[in-house]
Design a protein around this nucleic acid. Structure first.
Length: 1016
RNA sequence: GCGGAUAUGGCGUAAUUGGUAGCCGCGCUAGACUUAGGAUCUAGUUCCUCACGGAGUGGGGGUUCGAGUCCCCCUAUCCGCACCA
């Protein structure tokens, strides 16, 4: 391979053969520059500094920095909140600034949205197109634990790197609006929103969040009578009781209703990360970040009562323009099911009657209940288990609780459970049915108790077969036809057919039976129609350092006289005054949890709240009178990302989250572009956040993101380290993993990987075939750099956009990423086609220049043919952008430039509009040519060319002529031609007679400007 | 298991309402200009066939004058959820 090195003072290049480092300096031949200009681009990986020669009529490396500077100087992308123009808000999902920097997958969505933003601007919109950083998060903190480097420093450094990379690609972001979630001026409003959530409850009747004071008033006047509010558990008390309670008891009660609440909840505890995780942060029993095992644990945690909004989150999907698949992902995640809650009675060890509630979606099968099942966490177990079964039950419960989520999920098919010895009574049949305990019933869903109908539920069926419990058929596909369930190999779960053996509903269709049973139990007062959601409340505490502190301190109150004897003083979580926000993240000297297992903030000395001075003070001052401890956990990653789109509207406002005028002007996000991997996390939380802000009169639209486009992932061709779910072994896969269900992308393992850093030496020992491989951490996965020698040309710079920009320029990178295929589609990254796009730009450049690379655009009138090419392009590109089909616009530009090159067209009247058309895609070259043509201002503010149909009219249309649907030849006919004329013309052709082969045409189909089809 | 999507040349893809399947690009082949080429230009490139012609959009059926596109069944791949009662 030959490489070219520049000499400083002369336009001469020395060509060297790279034979390795030693021979690099030995010249092979001398090359004299024949071209007007050459650029020498570093074309290298980090090891070998080599240069490549590129003929540079189109000198992007000069053009691009020049115009980027121009845009900065002119504040071209600055956008105002006041404008006569219509508004349009284009948003990208802001990145987490990881240490690996931007990779080629990132820009895909950014480029698409940038094209759309620039297009909208050219069409006369005032376009808000901001960018920022989701800067709080685990990796920076893990890094801090290992190195002692403060996360603020690494975050700052990573952001600088991201910014540099983003700038090189030429995005039209208004950087004056940048937000960072870790910036106090930003997280002030994250904390503020948390306090509002704390200060509100959800009124189910009004379907709206309401101030907690309204609830207090209600309790004081009528207790819980007639209350319909979202709550952790259903409470019943009178106004009299409420009024007698002391403050601690009242506060405890209010906690049951607050939208941000502190409660003992079963959480996903990740011991390796030392923190709890939200449901969307756990996949297959492992943490999404790191792939560590996760356990269930009962802990006192802050949660957000997102379940209160479950129905509105489902309903809102009707109003937004999102892909069906994403809407479906959200619907599945929310998991609405209609059914009935039914009360069953049983007796405890002391023969007292106890009622417990179950949830079922099949009330019609209640006559087929042959046993009941409680989850191992169910509080009833202790009360009802008979003495002789106590040991067995206790052992089972202990065993079930100790199992990790991963084990439990891996062994779903194994049946386990124990009989409590107790019996319940079927409220409709008065039948005595045994109560079992099994972990196939989940504590977190419904009431953690079920009625088992083994004949019509596959899980109950498996359980009944395993423990030899009776199976009774109560649904049949045909009326009154039953078979012996003992002969069945599976249960009959479908909600079709007729009820049998079912008392008063026997013979009814399943649907009618459901309604009849529900009506019946409602009349009898033993149950009610109800709706359950899979969506759980979001756990909001993280036992980590690098996140937003909770603006909460724990006030101790001296119990009232009447309560003093029997109640210890309870610390009351209390908000710090809103005017004291932000509560700054304190400095700590150690980012690990404390020796006593407290979160890292336990190391902070200055971490107590003085209510007298309203300020943070030293913890040693805590005195139970005026100085109280502050909350030690911090908020999760999704806190800062849930409302950032609103802050962009008015990012420097110190008085409010955002000004009323700002949100009234921008409304909500018109177009949101980002990955579908956020479907069950960020996109649910942000919608919830926005709905709450809507309820309290902040947001003006109930849905935050009107149109959403999911860009497909660009998969690297590099290898990843995975962990098999079956045997827990690590392995490396070249390219893409086929069955992601059996593996987890991994960068952590007890043996080979410590924390976030892969022990490559040990890994190589374990897998000697990777002796030469290079590993780099990227986006949470270890990338295995494949045999470095082979990584020439196409492989070298696979992942890094910087190298591509250096080699081909930003415009080529932008256009090429769009050319890869539809934006929504996932695709493996390869740079094989990028040369073609680069060639296109050189060709485009030559339209404006003569053989000597001198700018040469003529003012002559364009020909009809030239105008036709232009207007075809205008029409196609406009339509394509509107429907987000950027790959086809790129090919349209190629066709256009090919056509104009053949026509040798250098007419201003064609090239000027074409430059505007291409500006959203390739802003740098467009700006350069715009100025070369002597146009004023920036091409960003030009006017989108108008399409004129009349240039496309044809004198004749080439009709394809088919015989029995098979196209044989074409015939040119006037566009206005009638069926009669066409038939006559076609029948006169000798070719027609040939294809008819003597047969008579049975029928001739004529579709104007489409086709002629002869049926024979 | 449930839900969603996809399947077109050697490759990435195109065909917007059913109307000439394979646009554009990569790669490849041949040629021109060149000391040279990762420059540029020209021609060709779905498959089978010397050709005439035939076959062809994952497979099988159907609707239609006409199906990549609509309907039914099957297969494969990808994504999401998963003991959610």
């Amino acid at each position: 391979m030959h490489f070219v090195f520049p000499r400083k003072e002369e336009p001469i290049f020395l060509i060297y053969r790279t034979l390795g480092k030693k021979n690099r300096d030995r010249p092979l031949s001398i090359h004299i520059n024949r071209r007007p200009s050459y650029a020498c681009m570093p074309f290298s990986n980090k090891q070998n500094l080599t240069f490549s020669i590129i003929a540079m009529e189109y000198n992007f490396s000069e053009i691009e920095p020049k115009w980027q500077q121009f845009w900065r100087d002119q504040r071209t992308y600055h956008v105002d909140n006041k404008s006569d123009k219509p508004h349009f808000y284009v948003l990208d999902m802001f990145p987490y600034p990881s240490g690996a920097g931007l990779h080629v997958g990132h820009p895909l969505g950014y480029i698409a949205s940038d094209i759309f933003a620039r297009y909208k601007r050219l069409r006369g919109f005032n376009v808000l197109h901001p960018m920022g950083y989701d800067a709080y998060g685990l990796p920076a903190e893990q890094y801090a634990i290992q190195t002692g480097q403060h996360p603020a420093i690494t975050t700052e450094r990573n952001i600088a790197r991201y910014r540099e990379q983003l700038d090189k690609i030429g995005f039209s972001f208004d950087w004056s609006r940048e937000v960072r979630t870790c910036d106090p001026s930003y997280y002030k409003w994250t904390q503020w929103t948390f306090l509002q959530l704390f200060k509100h409850y959800y009124n189910n009747q009004l379907r709206k969040a309401m101030p907690i004071e309204a609830l207090e008033q209600r309790f004081a006047t009528c207790g819980t009578e007639g209350l319909d509010a979202a709550s952790s558990e259903e409470l019943a008390f009178t106004a009299q009781e409420w009024n007698q309670w002391d403050e601690a008891r009242r506060q405890q009660t209010l906690m049951n209703y607050r939208l941000a609440y502190l409660a003992d909840t079963y959480v996903n505890w990740c011991p390796a990360l030392g923190t709890v995780l939200a449901n969307d942060e756990v996949v297959g029993g492992l943490s999404v970040r790191g792939g560590y095992p996760v356990e269930r644990k009962l802990m006192r945690q802050w949660s957000l009562r997102i379940s209160a909004y479950a129905q509105r989150l489902v309903d809102g999907l009707e109003q937004v323009d999102w892909s069906d698949s994403l809407k479906e992902i959200q619907r599945n995640w929310i998991g609405r099911s209609e059914g009935a809650a039914v009360w069953f009675n049983c007796t405890d060890a002391a023969q007292r009657t106890i009622s417990f509630e179950i949830f079922t979606t099949r009330p019609d099968t209640i006559f087929g209940v042959t046993f009941m099942v409680l989850c191992p966490e169910h509080e009833l177990i202790e009360q009802i288990t008979t003495p002789e079964r106590k040991k067995e039950v206790d052992d089972y419960v202990a065993w079930a609780k100790n199992r990790s989520e991963r084990e439990r999920q891996a062994e779903v098919k194994k049946v386990s459970g124990v009989f409590t010895g107790a019996y319940a009574v079927n409220p409709l049949t008065e039948e005595k049915i045994p109560i079992w305990v099994s972990d196939y019933v989940l504590a977190g869903y419904g009431t953690g108790a079920i009625m088992a109908v083994p004949a019509h539920d596959s899980r109950d069926f498996a359980f009944a077969r395993h423990f030899n419990l009776p199976i009774r058929q109560v649904v049949s596909l045909e009326k009154d036809v039953v078979s012996d369930p003992a002969t069945w190999t599976e249960s009959m779960d479908a909600k079709t057919g007729y009820s049998v053996n079912s008392g008063f509903v026997s013979g009814m269709k399943v649907k009618d039976a459901m309604a009849a049973v529900i009506n019946h139990i409602e009349e009898k007062g033993i149950g009610r129609r109800t709706i359950n959601y899979r969506l759980r409340d979001a756990i909001f505490s993280r036992q980590r350092y690098w996140g937003e502190p909770f603006p909460i301190y724990y006030r101790t109150v001296v119990a009232g006289a009447s309560e003093r004897c029997n109640r210890a003083p309870n610390p009351i979580p209390t908000p710090i005054p809103e005017e004291c926000l932000p509560l700054l993240l304190p400095e700590v000297d150690d980012f690990k949890p404390t020796a006593t297992g407290e979160p890292p903030l336990g190391h902070a000395k200055q971490w107590a709240w003085d209510t007298k001075t309203n300020s943070v003070v030293d913890r040693s001052a805590i005195d139970n009178q005026t100085v109280f401890p502050l909350e030690l956990s911090t908020m999760p990653g999704f806190a800062g990302s849930s409302g950032y789109y609103l802050r962009y509207m008015d990012p420097r406002n110190n008085e409010a989250y955002f000004a009323k005028e700002a949100v009234e002007y921008w409304q909500n996000v018109d177009l949101y572009v980002g990955g579908a991997e956020h479907g069950t996390g960020h996109l649910i939380y942000a919608r919830f956040w926005n709905k709450f802000l809507f309820d309290i009169g902040m947001a003006v639209k109930e849905e935050p993101f009107q149109k959403l486009v999911n860009q497909g992932m660009i998969q690297g061709r590099s290898s990843f380290v995975y962990r098999s779910k079956d045997d827990n072994n690590l392995f490396i896969s070249k390219g893409l993993i086929k069955d992601m269900n059996s593996v987890t992308p991994i960068h952590v393992d007890i043996n080979i990987v410590d924390a976030d850093i892969l022990d490559t030496e040990r890994f190589r020992q374990w897998r000697p075939e990777y002796a030469d491989a290079r590993f780099e951490l990227e986006d949470g996965k270890y990338v295995c750099g494949w045999e470095i020698e082979k990584m020439s040309k196409s492989m070298f710079n696979v992942q890094n956009p910087d190298d591509l920009v250096a080699r081909y320029g930003a415009d080529t990178l932008r256009m090429y990423e769009m050319f890869l295929g539809p934006v929504e589609q996932a695709k493996p990254w390869d740079t094989n086609g990028i040369e073609g796009v680069f060639r296109f730009f050189k060709k485009f450049w030559r339209l404006f220049h003569d053989d000597k690379n001198t700018f040469n655009v003529s003012n002559e009138e364009p020909t009809k043919a030239e105008l036709k090419v232009l207007h075809q392009t205008i029409k196609k590109v406009t339509d394509d952008i509107e429907r987000f089909s950027f790959n086809t616009s790129v090919s349209t530009f190629m066709i256009c430039v090919n056509d104009l090159s053949s026509l040798k067209c250098n007419k201003r009247a064609v090239l000027e509009p074409l430059t505007v058309l291409i500006a959203p895609f390739a802003p740098h070259i467009a700006e350069e040519l715009w100025h070369l043509m002597g146009c004023q201002g920036s091409v960003c503010d030009a006017q989108w060319p108008a399409f004129n149909e009349s240039f496309l009219t044809e004198d004749s249309f080439n009709y394809p002529v088919s015989f029995n649907g098979k196209m044989r030849f074409t015939i040119a006919l006037p566009p206005s031609c009638t069926q009669q004329e066409a038939t006559e013309a076609v029948m006169a052709l000798p070719d027609t007679q040939k294809w008819l082969a003597g047969k008579e045409p049975k029928k001739i189909i004529f579709v104007p400007k489409r086709i002629i089809n002869i049926v024979c």
